[in-house]
């Protein structure tokens, strides 16, 4: 549950994958709206980015727990310790609703805490928090992480990396937009038009990262097939896995 079949090298690969290769903004296109419609300065972009990193990482973890213990397949089996057999109950249809509630709720609580703890921080950051609750990237990252079935630590790394990648992309676009604002652009394309074209070019640049495959647990060595058949008297089947295959499973529990 914690690390699954991932080793530390895989985690590094996962960071690279979520920050660069599958950059949330430039490859998966999530989180553009809030950004495009309201900020053209690097400073605001950084503010947004930091807020997203924080909210996404914590929500990602909370939603993983939610998926694991409430809405995922077979998730309610922990109820068996109070005597209720709830393993076959499938609450998956509530997932969207619960996820977005967690995100919105956490954002609200965070806003209250920041306002109470540090008014100065609230002045600079607090305005973005309501916007972030409805940021596609947050819900998207939580949902993607859940479809991929990562164990706990890889999930944490994945949401953290996605948020960092989002921040990176936002900062890059804002920096370019600051320069574009004083450039000589075709009148029809000024503002949004050129921003899109520029984002497209950046997206192409990020495509150059495709193919770096460090993130997935190693595939097994090819099962060697010897001349001798398997032992005549086998033990009763306690574990249904074929004993002649290596123990690292191809598609681990995490995938």
């Amino acid at each position: 549950m914690w690390m699954g079949d991932f080793n530390h090298f895989n985690l590094l690969g996962l960071v690279l994958q979520s920050v660069f290769i599958e950059n949330f903004l430039l490859v998966n296109f999530l989180g553009m709206c809030t950004y495009l419609a309201c900020s053209t300065k690097l400073k605001t972009a950084n503010g947004l980015g930091i807020a997203v990193v924080f909210v996404l990482t914590v929500s990602g973890v909370l939603n993983w727990l939610l998926h694991r213990f409430v809405t995922g397949p077979g998730a309610l089996s922990w109820l068996s310790f109070i005597g209720v057999d709830a393993e076959r109950i499938d609450l998956g249809f509530l997932e969207f609703l619960l996820f977005i509630s967690v995100i919105a709720g956490f954002t609200q609580i965070l806003e209250i805490i920041i306002e109470w703890a540090s008014p100065a921080l609230y002045m600079s950051l607090g305005l973005y928090l309501p916007l972030i609750a409805v940021n596609c990237a947050i819900l998207g990252a939580c949902l993607f992480a859940v479809t991929r079935d990562y164990p706990f630590i890889p999930n944490l790394i994945y949401v953290l990396g996605s948020a960092l990648g989002w921040w990176l992309a936002i900062a890059l676009i804002a920096a370019i937009r600051e320069k574009l604002a004083i450039s000589n652009i075709v009148p029809g394309l000024r503002g949004m038009g050129i921003t899109f074209i520029m984002s497209g070019l950046m997206s192409m640049a990020f495509m150059g990262f495709t193919g770096i495959k460090l993130a997935n647990p190693a595939p097994p060595q090819v099962a060697t097939w010897g001349e001798e058949p398997a032992a005549e008297n086998e033990e009763p089947i306690l574990d249904s896995r074929d004993p002649s295959l290596p123990t690292i499973s191809f598609l681990s529990l995490s995938h």
Partner: peptide
């Protein structure tokens, strides 16, 4: 992905 960006930019224009 990039093509979608270009298309929307063009459409806005």
């Amino acid at each position: 992905p990039p093509a979608a960006f270009f298309l929307i930019g063009g459409l806005i224009y």
